[in-house]
């Protein structure tokens, strides 16, 4: 009885810790084989980069406009309107969009769209035994498949963050205009509150998000098993773990950034 209870509690926990450990090992292997010559992954990198861009650009625009129009647009504009200070919306947008929502939306879209596609692709290759065939041919799957996806996702996520900021700002302009306020004060407070630290923090955060998504989705794809249901289940687990990882990393990173850079929390 006691043993059954113990197994039921600790077996999933052990599995979880093992998964985390294997992902760490995969990260290490990916990093070392990315920098160690030869570099056969150039072409695959370009293909994956274009694949991710083509898949994600439209969901990205829709998501970033919607997410900034609602939470930081309508709610914040309502609040500021009560004080007659709608011109401060721009300053708020630096905090809300550049620091928080653009990276978050970016990561959610990349994990949900590009990450799932990568996981489904690798999982399909795994259960058709193509990966085993590659290994027999002497081709290293990590160097030739994981490394280009890892680098491409990091680059695309960082790049799309810039677009998420631009379209997020567009959402803010939309809210300002629907409230009947002029755009000049919006941009004035926007640019006086903007700091380079904020921008590089945002970029660094999204690049790390891209790395998390790539490692989780590649790991789940490479270890897919169990025939028909296997690939679907792998994609399911990959997206769940990615979202939780993104949330956890976001919290730690934002907290550290705000605590170590007090100039970010000044209102100008």
């Amino acid at each position: 009885m006691l043993r059954a209870v113990g197994e039921r509690t600790f077996l999933p926990l052990r599995e979880f810790i093992e998964t985390i450990g294997s992902m760490g090992v995969l990260t290490g292997k990916t990093l070392t084989s990315a920098v160690r010559p030869p570099y056969p992954y150039g072409k695959e990198f370009v293909t994956q980069f274009l694949f991710a861009v083509r898949l994600c650009w439209f969901p990205m625009i829709v998501a970033s406009v919607a997410f900034t129009y609602g939470p930081s647009g309508v709610q914040a504009a309502n609040f500021l309107n009560l004080f007659g200070a709608i011109d401060r919306l721009g300053g708020l947008f630096i905090v809300a969009v550049v620091r928080e929502f653009a990276p978050l939306v970016c990561a959610i879209v990349m994990a949900g769209v590009a990450g799932t596609a990568i996981c489904a692709d690798l999982g399909a290759r795994k259960i058709r035994e193509e990966l085993d065939a590659l290994q027999v041919l002497g081709v290293d799957p990590i160097k030739n498949l994981v490394v280009p996806r890892f680098l491409a996702l990091m680059l695309v996520t960082g790049m799309f963050n810039v677009y998420a900021v631009i379209f997020g700002t567009f959402g803010g302009m939309l809210v300002t205009v629907t409230n009947g306020a002029p755009l000049g004060p919006f941009f004035a407070t926007y640019f006086t509150n903007a700091t380079p630290t904020e921008l590089w923090g945002s970029l660094l955060k999204t690049v790390m998000f891209g790395a998390i998504i790539a490692i989780v989705c590649c790991y789940k794809g490479l270890t897919a098993k169990g025939g028909a249901e296997g690939v679907g289940r792998a994609v399911n687990q990959a997206v769940v773990i990615s979202f939780l990882g993104i949330g956890a990393f976001n919290y730690v990173f934002t907290q550290t950034l705000l605590a170590t850079h007090p100039e970010l929390t000044l209102v100008r």
Partner: peptide, 16 residues
């Protein structure tokens, strides 16, 4: 089996 994985990925796009 490959189709199941693709359908799973596609459903996520629509959901977003």
């Amino acid at each position: 089996p490959v189709g199941v994985g693709t359908a799973t990925a596609k459903s996520m796009v629509v959901n977003i």
